[in-house]
């Protein structure tokens, strides 16, 4: 049984098909990149996989359970328990410190635990910046806080939306290295990107065009 399976997913807005009959599987521990030009359906795909939207047609199986017809409340619970989100714009709460931003995720999941949050920051090399506000951190550091927040509740899938879109090359490499580390630790990664360099380091790349899955590329140079 696959960790995540999309079966003939379509998302229709009026006359527009944002996603058109897309199917793919993600196994536990996979590192999958989703690529495509603007308007190809990447964001819609991310929303559906991230339990923030429901498909118009088709099934989304997570751990074998169909979540495509679940209520918003159930999707919120699934998102909270099973998905870790990494955003292009980091979306840190600007009046909370780095460690408090990580603890926000714990707050909605279980119980805030500062020690655990500090350990998550240490994992991304930011323990010494734990008490800093987002405004006192560089873009790369903010993204690493965002990654620590996504990891804190041990999600089954880490879903990253353009995680390096706002970073310079040095910070991009740091984030990619963290992803490699996470993959080695068995974390399932789905990275939505338009950056070929980020896609190349994944195990395989799904290419979307006009809402359809145009091709699936297995990275021949992938190194575990």
């Amino acid at each position: 049984m696959s960790l995540l399976e999309l079966k003939n997913i379509s998302k229709i807005y009026g006359d527009l098909k944002a996603l058109d009959d897309v199917s793919f599987k993600v196994e536990k521990g996979d590192w999958v990149a989703i690529m495509g030009p603007s308007g190809s359906g990447k964001s819609t795909m991310m929303n559906i996989v991230g339990c923030m939207d429901k498909p118009s047609l088709g099934q989304v199986l997570l751990d074998g359970a169909d979540i495509s017809k679940e209520s918003d409340k159930s999707l919120t619970n699934i998102r909270r328990d099973k998905i870790g989100l990494i955003f292009q714009q980091f979306h840190l709460v600007n009046y909370l410190t780095a460690v408090e931003n990580v603890m926000v995720s714990q707050y909605y999941h279980s119980m805030p635990d500062e020690k655990e949050a500090l350990a998550a920051l240490e994992r991304v090399g930011l323990k010494d910046r734990a008490k800093h506000l987002p405004s006192q951190l560089s873009g790369g550091e903010q993204q690493r806080v965002c990654i620590a927040r996504a990891l804190i509740n041990y999600p089954e899938i880490v879903l990253a939306d353009e995680p390096t879109g706002n970073l310079d090359e040095a910070n991009e490499n740091i984030v990619i290295d963290i992803f490699k580390q996470l993959h080695r630790e068995g974390t399932t990664l789905i990275v939505v990107t338009h950056d070929p360099e980020v896609a190349e380091v994944a195990q395989r790349t799904l290419v979307l065009e006009h809402g359809r899955l145009a091709k699936e590329i297995v990275n021949p140079n992938f190194k575990d």
């Binding site: 991230g50 923030m52 409340k73 919120t76 619970n77 998102r79 909270r80 328990d81 989100l85 979306h91 709460v93 926000v104 995720s105 909605y108 999941h109 927040r149």
Partner: peptide, 16 residues
């Protein structure tokens, strides 16, 4: 609005 959206994305329920 963004913070609310973030909180909801992180798993905050409407009741929360």
């Amino acid at each position: 609005r963004k913070e609310i959206g973030l909180r909801k994305a992180l798993g905050a329920s409407n009741a929360g």
